[in-house]
Amino acid sequence: MSATRVAVLRFPGTLDHQSAARAVQGVGAEPVFTHHEDTALPTGTHAVVIPGGFSYGDHLRPGALASRTPIMGAVKDHAKAGGKVLGICNGFQILCESGLLPGVLRPNASLSFICRQADLEVADAGTPWTGGRGAGEVLSIPFKHHDGAWFGTPGEARVVLRYKGENPNGSIDKIAGISNLAGNVMGLMPHPEEAQEPLLGSTDGRVLFAALIA
């Protein structure tokens, strides 16, 4: 039997497609790079990853232009049918811009780009995205962004991950990642694809990719 297919979207300016694809392979699935001008997801797509980067150079607003590309129509259909979608960093911004997740990502309170390792606390343990970790359990995953402060109404989403300790970017309620109410669409600012092996400092990012095929 062939491996489960996971579409890894690629827009002009996407940067993390290779590492996201390796993380997809790491959980035994088959990554398929998918071009932004395509109007359909690859045949047999089980789940979608929208990796990080600077799609369209962050022109207009981060994620704004990418959210209006042809492939996002197919992603919306996939999500409506209950398919899983994981948006990381710029992918999270694209999901918010496209309306698949509520809220917006505002510039960090410091108004500067911040890159560092973070402890993330599992808030809502009931979604598939944290692999059965209990509420309050901690995942060590790095984040790096300039526009990562989620702003919106927490009740419109499920708060999956919160920054533990100091709020690094001024997001509402220390939110690091949310899913839609149905739980099949997940967006987070930290980068689980960069927490995949001990030599990189953490393996805690694996649960989010494992959730794609769970």
Binding site: D16, S19, S112, I114, C115, R116, P142, K144, L200
Partner: peptide, 12 residues
């Protein structure tokens, strides 16, 4: 801290 130190997932 203002630089992406990790992109590419190869920084050890």
């Amino acid at each position: 801290q203002q630089y992406d130190q990790l992109v590419g997932a190869g920084t050890m």
